[in-house]
């Protein structure tokens, strides 16, 4: 990378990769602001000749889009809260307390993660029916928790292994109860891990399609992924312009979250290597 030519070549390559990756996103945004008649013109236009937000207006006022959005937000936040609370306490227990079968337990938790999610759908569905919570957002929260939790637990476990035992011991000697020591000392230390775990979980819940499709079939509980599909994609017709507008609005929350917290996310990927 010493010579100018080398640097230019590297930059060209990097930008090519970025463009290839970003092109569908750009195309999605551009399509969402093109008027209907421009969409199927041949040859296609890249830059819209006329910019319109009619699709967004239609989406918001004439379709149940906002209801799906609300469902997705509830689903995303509820899943994240449940998973992070359980995984943080669970990871702390796996790291800090000595009890028989501790390692085995951690491995078994990961084992559920190895099963293809399709395998779990039917048993889960039957369970939801039996519990009487089928067709609710809550049933999806529970379903997502089953496959987000193992990963979250392992991610947080490796974060917590990096926190020295002495810190908690010091807090106990200083007069804190176990819970106080956890809140005052462990949580602040595990915060980067908790944030990246939250992100992973939220993204997972936000983007999930299969479980939502199988477990929920009323508009009252449908999240964006399946809602938008069932609303705009039918056997006879695909409403491309609305679909693109919906896709842009679905992507926005994630893009905003990413922009603010991406440093934590990359740190999450490196977890396990982060010690002391």
């Amino acid at each position: 990378m010493k010579t100018i030519a080398g640097r230019i070549a590297f930059n060209l390559f990097a930008w090519t990769v970025v463009l290839v990756t970003a092109f569908p996103l750009i195309w999605m945004i551009l399509t969402s602001v093109k008027p209907q008649f421009e969409l199927f013109r041949i040859p296609p236009t890249f830059w819209p000749e006329q910019i319109t937000f009619e699709h967004y207006v239609r989406l918001i006022y004439e379709t149940p889009f906002l209801k799906y959005m609300r469902n997705s937000l509830i689903l995303g936040f509820a899943t994240t809260i449940v998973v992070v609370v359980v995984a943080t306490l669970g990871a702390h227990s796996l790291v800090r307390f000595r009890y028989p079968g501790r390692e085995r337990l951690a491995q078994m938790v990961l084992f559920t993660y190895l099963l293809p999610s399709v395998v779990l759908i039917l048993p889960l569905y039957l369970m939801m029916v039996w519990l009487g919570i089928a067709n609710t957002i809550f049933s999806l929260v529970i379903a997502y928790t089953t496959f987000a939790l193992p990963y979250a637990l392992w991610l947080l476990r490796s974060f917590m292994q990096g926190i020295p035992d002495d810190l908690e011991a010091a807090a106990l000697v200083d007069g804190a109860t176990r819970m106080e020591a956890f809140v005052d000392v462990i949580l602040p230390q595990a915060l980067p891990g908790i944030i990246s775990t939250s992100l992973f979980t939220f993204i997972l819940a936000w983007n999930e399609y299969l479980y939502a499709l199988v477990l929920v079939n009323t508009d009252e509980a449908r999240p964006l992924t399946t809602g938008v599909m069932s609303m705009l994609v039918s056997a006879f017709n695909i409403e491309w312009s609305l679909l693109m507008a919906a896709s842009v609005m679905m992507s926005l929350p994630l893009i905003i979250i990413f922009a603010f917290l991406q440093t934590y996310l990359t740190r999450g990927f490196g977890a396990g290597g982060v010690k002391g």
Partner: peptide, 20 residues
């Protein structure tokens, strides 16, 4: 008796200062 009620104070080898 829990550690905090024993009227003791401890200095750790690693110091165990709260980093935040």
């Amino acid at each position: 008796v829990p550690p905090g009620q024993r009227d003791i104070a401890m200095v750790f080898q690693s110091y165990a200062l709260y980093p935040h």
